[in-house]
Design a protein around this nucleic acid. Structure first.
Lengths: 222, 222
DNA sequence: AGCTTACGGTGACAATGTCACCAAAGGATA
DNA sequence: TATCCTTTGGTGACATTGTCACCGTAAGCT
């Protein structure tokens, strides 16, 4: 009989071999970070691989030109393989991870990570699956940025950011960074959405009035 | 004393432990593919991890909308980690690998790959470094597609495709796929380049007349 | 030769990005 | 409260890029 541990929050780690479980549990530390803190970034490469237990981490890229773009988010139950990649420190990439909420994570040191990969087939599968998903997601993102219309992307992003809630607390500027475009462009599109009765706006907030209408546009993906 | 093997073409594999070397050599097969053949792609997922010994493989994405874009190239001495990712078959991604030249590669079966990762620290470093580089490259690409001016990207791509040669044998359409844009846009930009005396054009060929001028534009990256 | 396809040119227009502003809202402080 | 200051968002002019509907020519094929 095994007591519940943080491992159980990760589908891919549930069936680890007992000795591997023990190694992972005994050599990892639970860490916490407040909302808004920078988990990793240029000049602040993480010493550990992170398993996110609670909260959301936003990974975004800062271009030399001052342009930002959100690359992806890590939610609870996901691992931050990118920090793994960063552990190997290919070169300091310009991406940074920012806690969007208060965050809890299990930190696994580099050498433990290496040992786990060596010893456990399940762990290997977990790690490679995470890499694989990350890369295919990046492929999809490239496709979107290169070829998808902005109104479609914005509609899609609004729905995702709402998470089912009625209103999204964000600014035009932040939405622009989500999509890698300019604030003015977002403002224009939101005006058009409003004109169609899909949303209403307030300072720092977008309220979804007609989910169906937005969804119909967003689905031009398929 | 060890005779020369294909392993020596890979910087990261040169110092593998002897038993690991032997495993890799004995369980891998040298395969060849003619220029133009599809190495992997939708509905044709590779059974093996590939180490490219000779030639160039172009990896490009095919969008539902019919838009293509070149993601990256694999040159001799590089491994196709993506095929590794694909081995795990997250889901059939829409990317395909096409031999741009006649190609030779060492094919390592999936189970051998897994065993190598388990047994050799050097091999693990090699694999994770490859993943890491691929992901950081994709980050750079997203930045480029989202924020870089098209003339800068085209200039840069022309120089890279030339590989030092005077003329690049390609069509406007192919250059458009390189950049993920439309053929007409490439045509216009090339006309402008020609007007400036940087290039001259023929059907299916672009001749670089003023590398310095092109380079100056391309370097607006930095 | 005739046919077919690939290649490239062109103009009009739409969508998106950039720039230089402005005004209003909210927060901080004297 | 009055005053500043920052953040947020609006606007118009313009540049760049994407899309569409064409066209003519070059190259390959039979």
């Amino acid at each position: 009989m095994q007591t519940e541990t943080w491992l159980d929050r990760f589908a891919g780690l549930a069936r680890l071999e007992p000795p591997v479980r023990d190694l992972l549990l005994s050599r990892s530390a639970i860490i916490a970070a407040p909302a808004g803190s920078v988990i990793f970034g240029p000049g602040k490469s993480p010493e550990n691989m992170l398993f996110l237990l609670d909260g959301v981490v936003r990974v975004q890229q800062v271009s030399e030109s001052g342009h930002d773009i959100v690359l992806y988010r890590i939610t609870a139950g996901e691992s931050c393989v990118l920090t793994t990649a960063c552990l190997l420190a290919y070169d300091d990439y310009a991406a940074e991870g920012i806690a969007e909420t208060d965050v809890q994570a299990a930190a696994v040191p580099r050498d433990v990570f290496d040992e786990l990969v060596a010893q456990s087939k399940s762990f290997r599968n977990f790690v490679f699956a995470a890499f694989s998903k990350r890369i295919t997601d990046l492929f999809l993102m490239i496709d979107e940025v290169a070829f998808q219309r902005l109104d479609v992307r914005l509609a899609d992003r609004l729905l995702k950011l709402s998470g089912g809630a009625d209103t999204v607390a964000t600014t035009h500027q932040k939405l622009a960074v989500e999509l890698g475009t300019a604030r003015e462009v977002v403002s224009r599109q939101l005006q058009e959405f409003q004109r169609r009765g899909w949303i209403s706006q307030a300072r720092g907030a977008v309220t979804l009035q007609d989910r169906a209408g937005i969804l119909k546009l967003a689905q031009h993906h398929s």
